Simulated assay, not measured.
Amino acid sequence: MKVLFLSENYYNDEYANITGSIYQSYLIAKFLSQKGFKIMYVSLSKIPRSFKENDNFEVYLIKEKNNVFLSFFEVLKFIRNLEFDLVYTRGRSYLLFIAFLTKKPYIFNSNAQEGLRKFKHISKLFYSKRNFFKKILLFIPFLILDFLVQIGIKNSHLIIVQNEFQRNEAKKIWKRDAIIIPNLQFRVKNYPKKSEKIVIWIGQITKWKNPQLFIEIAQKLKKYKFLMIGYGDLNLIEGYEKIENLKFLGKLKNEEINKILEKSWIILNTSEGESEGIPNVIIQAMMRGNVPICLNDDFSILEKYKIGFKVKNLNEMIEKIILLFENENLFFDYSKRAFEFSNNYFDYERNGNLYYQYFLEIFSKNS
């Protein structure tokens, strides 16, 4: 079977802005190529080129344009020359409408808690801090984008979600029975030695990731060590260098992050609102025995399986950090449960095979 992957960026593109969703698309494509599927992975890049990841995995990076609508036509024009049986796209973008236009069976994979909501772009525009005139200017383009996305979701042949919350959203909003397939990650064989009490934050430094909260917590808990890993708008964490117990490490390779996670105890997720799915960094951290403390969201798993905490504000986050550091027995109970649960629930082979089965099912039903 020939599968077309449509993605806004490619994981191994050094010029790309890499997110957890991009990484997941790459892992799924890689797994399916190893199972014998022919993968055509089409994405955007500052430097257009094509190459092979392996004999079954071809990558086409086409020239990124200055706006969404120009990119839309560029992708549409390019894929007309490709022959494929099935289309996969992850996250809500104009690529969903392109999948619809191919007239081939296609799979939509939600990547966020609010990924299935209607008029998401308009809603975000309305509540954004842009000035009034800019909102007026952007209203029509955002409205068009929302309509295109919604046509794509409505007509998809299968909706895949990350958790129970998203499945309920699919049923409530779209009257669709979505399939839950958790994210993929490579197993960690042995529970690591926890040598040092460290609180860690990993992510893109953007407003909605709320990194300032991590800075505030480090200032208030001077007796503990805090590490921050990421890249983006450093103005949002201005003054971090004055905090003695906080070290900012910048952008690191995945292997370097994993080594740090083997030592650290707690990972904080400070993102505002129920906007993320299950962040890859949270999964990576749990697979190495870190206990997540997350603002406003537990991704339908943390409290249910007693592997982490959902909190409402800064004070509650501080209370949980102190609780885990001062009560080591409690920490290791949560840590070892998080390790066991995540290495089973997010296993690369297990979840990759679920994708394989559903891709075959959709293909056979529509061929």
Rank of each mutant, 00 (worst) to 15 (best):
Y94R: 09
N111E: 07
W174M: 10
I98L: 14
F73D: 02
Y191H: 09
I98P: 12
F97M: 00
K124G: 07
S195L: 15
K104A: 12
P141D: 02
N109R: 06
K77N: 14
F186M: 01
I200Y: 11
R167K: 12
L138N: 06
W174F: 07
R117P: 00
K129W: 05
F119E: 07
D177S: 11
N109H: 04
K77L: 13
F126R: 07
N190E: 05
L116I: 05
K129A: 05
R130E: 00
F97C: 01
N111V: 10
F119K: 14
K175V: 05
R176H: 00
N131E: 08
K193R: 09
F72G: 11
E164T: 14
F100P: 08
I160N: 06
F84M: 09
V87E: 01
S128C: 12
A112K: 04
F133R: 14
S195V: 10
E74Y: 13
F73W: 12
L116R: 08
D177L: 08
P141S: 04
L101P: 04
D146R: 15
K104R: 14
L148N: 15
F186T: 03
Y106H: 04
K189V: 07
L96R: 07
N183W: 02
S71E: 10
K172A: 08
Q166S: 07
K175G: 12
R187E: 04
P105S: 03
L125Q: 05
F97P: 03
P105A: 06
L116T: 04
N190W: 01
K135D: 03
V149G: 01
I107Q: 05
K124H: 08
R90D: 01
S156V: 08
F72K: 11
E196V: 11
D146M: 14
K118M: 00
V188G: 01
E74F: 07
L158Q: 07
G91E: 00
N111K: 02
F132A: 13
L82V: 12
V87I: 09
Q113S: 14
R187W: 02
L70N: 11
I160D: 03
N155S: 09
F142C: 15
L101G: 13
K129S: 07
L95I: 09
E169F: 15
A112F: 05
K189G: 03
L95F: 14
L86M: 03
I159K: 11
L76Y: 15
N183I: 01
E114K: 13
R80C: 10
L148K: 15
E83I: 11
I160G: 06
N111Q: 11
F108Q: 00
A112I: 01
S93A: 14
L138E: 05
L184K: 08
A178H: 06
V161D: 03
E83A: 10
R80H: 13
I173Y: 10
N131V: 11
I200C: 12
T89M: 09
Q150H: 15
L143I: 01
L143E: 00
F165W: 00
P141R: 05
K172F: 08
Y127G: 02
S110L: 02
S93F: 12
L95S: 09
L76S: 10
S195H: 11
K124W: 06
S195A: 15
N163P: 06
K103G: 03
R80V: 03
R80N: 13
K120F: 09
S71W: 02
L145G: 06
F133M: 12
K172Q: 07
I200M: 09
K197F: 04
I140H: 06
R130F: 06
I181T: 11
L101F: 04
Y191S: 14
